[in-house]
Amino acid sequence: MKAAAFAYARATSVVNALELLAVHGDKAKVLSGGQSLMPAMNLRLLSPDVVIDICDLAELRGIVVKGNVLVIGALTRHVDLQRSADVATYAPLLRDAIVHVAHPAIRNRGTIGGSLAHADPASELPACMVTLDATIVVRGPGGERRIAATEFFKGIYETALSPDELLVAVELPIAPAGSTCFFQEFARRHGDYAIVGLAAQAVVKDGTFANLRLGFFAVGDRPLLAAVAGKLIDVFVTPASLAEAAAALVEELDPHEDQQGSPAMRRHLAKVLLLRCVAALLARPELDTGAAG
């Protein structure tokens, strides 16, 4: 379990990192927190010719509020998200989600940009970005591109990022007043990748959803912004309508089979999550009747 030999370059600026990427293209890998890259290299699942280390790029680190947007630098570590007062205030969903990302040692090193660029369909942060309608900011030889999170994730470990581009930041619309959120995932052990997870944000007015975004993860090859949310907005949710929504949800999902669960189990658990989520967000525990079974 030793990585194959590789060249190492420590980028001195974003511009320098882009120059290095322009030279090496897909023969290079960008190193930020290294929590997915290094194991993959040690297992020789990946053998990049060049590793471009961007850890020194202070310009990519930090959390700031700009008008109605929370801007998070790509190198911001999970632990910094977890401790950020701005994240807790303006993106509470992210605060709730981050503690489900692996373990403290990994959160101390892993970065938000690394997690998003890696695009594991079972990981928490991509789903949060989709739910929160984030914009992913990338920079390349042609300048900056701003990509909606819903367009960014293309498949298992696949994104809209091209080999000569660097993910530099994410922009999250500040959570509207009166919004609530829900985050839950089913994982065999604390810190494991989810079997199924749900990152949801809603605006509830007079007991009904004025807005609802449901970002499911580990139910397909990328995070899924469930269309079924539309059925629950601006209507009084009843056990029957919720059951109908749950049935419709199943049609939207294309879960994979792996050692933790069959597609049928993932569909079932997604329904359980939907019921729990709606019951929690509407503060109506009776809606979580177990009817998903």
């Binding site: 089913f186 065999r188 933790q260 669960g261 069959s262 189990m265 079932h268 079974g293």
Partner: peptide, 13 residues
């Protein structure tokens, strides 16, 4: 006793 085994035994999946 995995969730898959238990859910199967319960007839939920």
């Amino acid at each position: 006793l995995t969730p898959q085994v238990i859910l199967t035994a319960l007839g939920r999946i």
